[in-house]
Measured scan of single mutants.
Amino acid sequence: MGFKLLSKLLVYLTASIMAIASPLAFSVDSSGEYPTVSEIPVGEVRLYQIADGVWSHIATQSFDGAVYPSNGLIVRDGDELLLIDTAWGAKNTAALLAEIEKQIGLPVTRAVSTHFHDDRVGGVDVLRAAGVATYASPSTRRLAEVEGNEIPTHSLEGLSSSGDAVRFGPVELFYPGAAHSTDNLIVYVPSASVLYGGCAIYELSRTSAGNVADADLAEWPTSIERIQQHYPEAQFVIPGHGLPGGLDLLKHTTNVVKAHTNRSVVE
């Protein structure tokens, strides 16, 4: 069995187990497998329904001669939608809004960016022009300005110390501490036991640490421990890039980060 097929099978099995364990909360999309990078042309966006009122959005972007996937989250909030992270750029984010209108038909009224990198804030200006209120932590807003990236308009308070959590509509926002970046936030959907790890969490097929220019490698494993301790009931975990899975993604990420750190020390 090929690795790609095995990865998709694991996603399907995880979703099936969740649907059985929580039949009222989960209505997993039966329309197909989780979209992969090879299936999404740059400039297009796919939506994948995880649970009743919960979707991931998947886009792709060219970077350094390669094409990478990027995940975000959409959560229903009454007759409105909360968006977590842009679709990595203005063109993708405009396509995301169009796809949401086509498939869901509810307005996106608020959006949260989970850290300051372009795959999370690139497209904020498109959201703002569409009347979406954009939010991020003060740290993310400051770092985005320093980096020359787009800056969300509103500040999220109460997320300055490791372990801080605040309720934001249908989700809980959690600051686990520094990891992929010093400002990275985690998003949890309690009604569906869905954990969105953003770039602080890796997919299972990833074996290298990737972009760690703004990471705190020493603190990252401790931050992941905080996530595990705060959300032990999480059933569906979405990484910032690639295929979702279960809580095993947290341990896998820790292993990859520690291996990278150990290699760096040896070198």
Rank of each mutant, 00 (worst) to 15 (best):
S193E: 11
T14P: 08
L96M: 06
D64I: 06
G158R: 14
R167V: 05
V266D: 14
R142F: 11
T153G: 09
D183Q: 00
S16N: 11
L97M: 04
L5M: 05
L24V: 08
G246S: 09
A133E: 10
V54R: 01
R142E: 07
N255T: 11
F26M: 09
E101Q: 12
T134K: 01
A59S: 07
L217H: 05
A213K: 12
N211E: 09
E44K: 10
E157T: 13
H117P: 00
D164W: 13
L156A: 08
K258D: 08
T222S: 10
I58G: 03
L156H: 02
L82A: 14
N92K: 13
S22I: 15
T253I: 03
L73G: 08
R206M: 10
I186V: 08
A25M: 08
F174K: 01
F116M: 15
I40H: 10
S181D: 01
E101F: 13
D248T: 15
Y231L: 13
K102A: 13
R263F: 04
L81V: 13
R141W: 04
L159K: 02
H57I: 02
V108T: 15
A130Q: 15
S31P: 10
A94I: 09
G89R: 09
S161Q: 14
S191R: 08
V212I: 06
M18V: 05
G105I: 15
V171T: 15
L243A: 06
A25C: 06
Y202D: 07
G245Q: 05
W55P: 01
N262S: 08
I50P: 04
I227M: 06
M1S: 03
F174L: 11
R76D: 10
T182I: 10
D214Q: 10
K91C: 14
S113N: 15
P23L: 05
Y68P: 04
S162D: 13
H154Q: 08
L82M: 13
V237M: 05
T14V: 11
A66S: 05
F63C: 06
S62K: 11
A136K: 03
H252W: 09
V146A: 12
K4T: 13
Q61A: 07
D183A: 00
S7E: 12
A87Q: 12
G43I: 10
G198W: 03
M1N: 03
H260A: 10
G245C: 02
H230L: 07
D125P: 03
R76N: 09
A234E: 03
A218W: 07
A95L: 12
E33I: 08
Q229D: 15
G105S: 10
E80I: 13
S264T: 10
I224D: 00
R110P: 03
A192L: 07
A200Q: 14
V121D: 01
N71F: 00
I74Y: 02
V112N: 02
R46N: 04
G246Q: 05
A178I: 06
I201R: 02
A90Y: 13
G123I: 02
L47R: 01
L173M: 11
V67A: 05
E219G: 10
E219M: 07
H180M: 00
L6N: 15
D248H: 06
L106R: 11
E225R: 12
S193V: 10
P138F: 05
K102G: 12
P41H: 05
L249D: 01
D248L: 12
L159T: 14
I224T: 06
P239V: 09
P138Y: 15
Y175W: 13
F168W: 14
L97P: 02
P69C: 06
D183I: 01
L82H: 14
N184G: 13
E99C: 13
F3M: 13
V124E: 08
A259I: 07
G197E: 01
R128T: 08
V132S: 10
G198C: 03
Q103I: 13
R46F: 15
I227C: 01
V67S: 06
G148I: 15
S31K: 10
P23Q: 08
C199W: 01
D125A: 12
A87H: 00
V166N: 15
I238G: 01
T93Y: 00
S223N: 15
Y135D: 01
V237A: 08
N71T: 09
H117C: 00
R110Y: 10
E150P: 10
I104L: 14
I74L: 07
V11G: 07
G240Q: 01
E203Q: 08
A215N: 06
V124R: 03
R226C: 03
K258F: 13
D64S: 06
T261Y: 11
F168T: 03
L143W: 12
G2P: 05
I186L: 10
V256S: 14
I186M: 13
L243G: 13
G148P: 09
I40A: 12
V108H: 00
D119C: 00
S264A: 08
T253K: 00
E219N: 08
G53T: 05
I238T: 03
V189A: 11
Y48R: 06
G245E: 05
V54W: 02
S137P: 05
R206N: 11
T222D: 11
A192Q: 12
K4C: 08
L82S: 14
H230I: 15
A87G: 12
S7L: 10
R263C: 09
G246Y: 09
F3E: 07
E225M: 14
